[in-house]
Computed example of a mutant assay.
Amino acid sequence: MDDVDRALEAALRELLARRAPSATVCPSEAARRVSGDPDDGDAWRPLMEPARAAARRLVAAGEVEITQRGRVVDPETAVGPIRVRRAGC
């Protein structure tokens, strides 16, 4: 795990902490936050898969769940858009 991976995990945690307990976030929100380049509207796109990987690590740690259409899904097999929420919500 490198600094970007740790920053993405931290960003997911921070985003969730600022929301209602049952609220979700998109991994793209963490990617945008970590990319830190407001002048490049697409700078965050290369961080999407690392952001999804960060979410999977947080699932493995028991901190979050990954959902699709409001249902918890297996993070290893989820394809398409996902959302992240605190575990147990």
Rank of each mutant, 00 (worst) to 15 (best):
D3G: 11
D3H: 11
D3W: 03
D3L: 14
D3Q: 13
D5F: 11
R6E: 14
R6V: 14
L8K: 10
L8R: 07
E9Y: 06
A10F: 05
A10Q: 10
A10W: 02
A10I: 03
A11R: 07
A11D: 02
R13T: 08
R13F: 02
E14K: 12
E14I: 10
E14A: 14
L16A: 05
L16S: 02
A17D: 13
A17N: 13
R18L: 14
R19K: 15
R19E: 14
P21A: 14
S22T: 15
A23G: 10
T24I: 09
T24Q: 10
T24F: 02
T24V: 15
V25Y: 02
V25E: 00
V25M: 03
C26A: 15
P27W: 09
P27M: 11
S28T: 15
E29F: 13
E29T: 11
A30M: 15
R32M: 14
R33F: 08
R33S: 15
R33P: 04
R33E: 11
R33D: 08
V34H: 02
S35D: 08
S35A: 15
S35C: 13
S35L: 08
S35Y: 06
G36E: 12
P38T: 07
P38I: 12
P38W: 08
P38Y: 07
D39I: 08
D39Q: 15
G41E: 12
G41W: 13
D42V: 13
D42W: 13
A43Y: 06
A43M: 09
W44D: 05
W44E: 05
P46R: 07
P46D: 04
L47W: 02
L47R: 03
L47M: 08
L47Q: 00
L47F: 05
M48G: 08
M48E: 04
M48I: 13
E49N: 05
E49T: 12
P50K: 05
A51N: 01
A53S: 07
A53N: 04
A53M: 05
A54H: 10
R56P: 02
R56D: 00
R57D: 01
L58C: 09
L58H: 07
V59F: 03
A61M: 06
G62M: 04
G62V: 04
V64L: 02
T67M: 04
T67K: 02
T67I: 06
T67Q: 07
Q68S: 03
Q68C: 01
Q68D: 02
R69H: 08
G70Q: 01
R71A: 05
R71L: 04
V72N: 01
V73K: 05
D74S: 14
D74H: 08
D74K: 09
D74M: 06
P75G: 12
P75S: 03
P75M: 04
E76K: 08
E76G: 14
T77Q: 06
T77W: 07
T77F: 11
A78E: 01
A78Y: 07
V79L: 12
G80D: 08
G80Q: 06
P81T: 14
I82W: 01
I82V: 12
R83Y: 03
R83L: 07
V84K: 00
R85M: 04
R85I: 03
R85G: 01
R86H: 11
R86L: 09
R86S: 12
G88F: 00
G88D: 00
C89D: 01
C89Y: 09
